[in-house]
Design a protein around this nucleic acid. Structure first.
Lengths: 199, 199
DNA sequence: ATATTACGATACTGTATCGTATCGTAATAG
DNA sequence: CTATTACGATACGATACAGTATCGTAATAT
């Protein structure tokens, strides 16, 4: 028995894909709720209704399981199209705000940052699956505006994205809350630094 | 023996303040390096050169010790005075950048966020000791500018602070690095959204 | 000197956790 | 049917850890 792929049929009992899906889902939740260090495979097995050997049959260790769980992360938001650049920015940031305000919304971020020195693959995966795609979304909106001649010549789009996204983290750190009109206020303040001046 | 204050002399051996200071220093370091859950009192005692009962004589438990350690945090930067508002903002943000780029600079932030649900006093203390004072510094600079008539009438200074501070977090999350000219770029982009327009 | 509190060293208790081993039953291919 | 892999249940071994107990020595006040 060499390789086990989804097309190949072996002589034994087939693995249940639902089992794997459930383990990963529970793991992601526990990672967010407990952090990496406190997250326990005993508790994950219990919550997923599987035995520990079932988990170890798929992943050699705790870090591998956590990594696999983070690999399931993805942005689940439709593209926005409001007709204006600022409208698109605001809508995208509102999606972002909503995902941050979910239970444990910030704690997964906290966890991957806290674990950077010990288990750096966690931050790498988080970055790849959520951070970069979100930024690309915002960059795409700004890039279209730039190509339409809306933005000033030297506008650094990356800096704009850092400002817009980062403000949520700062706000949360300051008060564990993000007010409703926040995205609009952010865009309103950054926009004059972006927009092409009329002469 | 009722209360033990620094002026009262009891009949027994006095406590060594250096012992307490050392324990707290080591605790803060371990909290930043290991996170709260993985931080261990065994290791702190070892690193501080004290016994565990010595720690427990001062603090009833792990959370109390971590909380006390965070209470020692404080901003250790002199006020800036460059002669211009943007200069002051940039200088303050450069101080901020330097503190974030220290070893484990972001992991303490990560830790308090990750622990919010389990040990909320950690985030509360971190907020009180570092987050709020930093914001006050930036707000003070902006407030002075506002009173000098430099800023637009309705400029929301809180939003500006969120943008400026938060951009560092976003940048770090995206690439685990903060480039040298970052503060200047941020201020340059936010400033047009703040400054009073000439007419 | 005695009494008192602080201290490090050490040991202990109870619990938790990772990773491993085992077993009987389940689900498949041939 | 046999052989094979998957599974849950269970147990195990080794280690770690928070919190507690104990003891002899240290550092003070009276």
């Amino acid at each position: 028995m060499v390789a086990k792929t989804s097309v190949e049929k072996s002589a034994g009992r087939p693995r249940d894909p639902e089992t794997e899906r459930r383990i990963l889902e529970v793991t992601l939740r526990h990672l967010a709720e407990e952090g990496y260090s406190r997250m326990s495979l005993d508790n994950i097995a219990l919550a997923a209704g599987v035995s520990k050997p079932t988990i170890y049959r798929r992943w050699p260790g705790k870090a591998d399981l956590a990594t696999a769980a983070l690999r399931t992360l993805q942005l689940a938001e439709p593209p926005v199209d409001t007709g204006t650049t600022t409208g698109d920015l605001i809508a995208t940031l509102e999606n972002f705000s909503r995902s941050l305000l979910r239970p444990n919304g910030l704690s997964l971020i906290g966890t991957v940052l806290a674990e950077e020195a010990h288990t750096p693959e966690l931050l790498a995966l988080f970055r790849e699956r959520l951070v970069v795609p979100r930024r690309q979304m915002l960059l795409a909106i700004l890039d279209r505006a730039k190509r339409r001649g809306e933005l000033r010549r030297g506008a650094n789009l990356d800096v704009a994205v850092n400002l817009l996204v980062g403000a949520f983290y700062a706000r949360y750190l300051a008060a564990s809350a993000i007010p409703a009109g926040f995205p609009r206020e952010l865009v309103a303040m950054v926009w004059p630094g972006l927009v092409r001046q009329r002469r």
